[in-house]
Amino acid sequence: MLTIRNAQMEVLSAQQRQKFVDAMCEFLRLQFKQELQGISQTSLQAKVSAALNSASRYGLRSHRDCCRYLNLAVTYGWEFEQLPENAWMREYLTDPNAGNPSQRLQRLISQCIYQMEVKENNRQMREAFGTVENLDADEEEQYDELEEDELLIANDWDKPNDLGQTP
């Protein structure tokens, strides 16, 4: 019978981990060619290793979850969830009512992609619409026109139409 002692298991585990760090470095270099161009291999290994420790603190332990977390780290910064502007990300990763760690990570990534897409779509829509910024220069003049036009604005929350008259 083959007996493996704890010390041997730890060595094996450390080897497995280092193997994974190396595999992740390779994965990230493939996915983020430009972003990681200026980072040496030693530095990248250190950053990946530190990021995996962070991921572990959020209960992210599977190869898949760690890989997904690393994607976020390269996209938003190696300690992205520690930045004040990303406090919401930390909340997503620690919310006890948002499922297990994998579900929390899935929800965070989904939200990140959604926000990026909305911001970009908004930018494109505003540009196509003639951009609000372009109005600024003429704003005063336009408000003068508004008064001359005797514009009526009414608002409600889901009320039936009711044709009004000019004030």
Binding site: D149, E150, L151, L152, I153, A154, N155, D156, W157, D158, K159, N161, G164, Q165, T166
Partner: peptide, 9 residues
């Protein structure tokens, strides 16, 4: 939300 715009009635 519904906002209504009129001009000259």
């Amino acid at each position: 939300l519904r906002v209504r715009f009129l001009i000259a009635g």
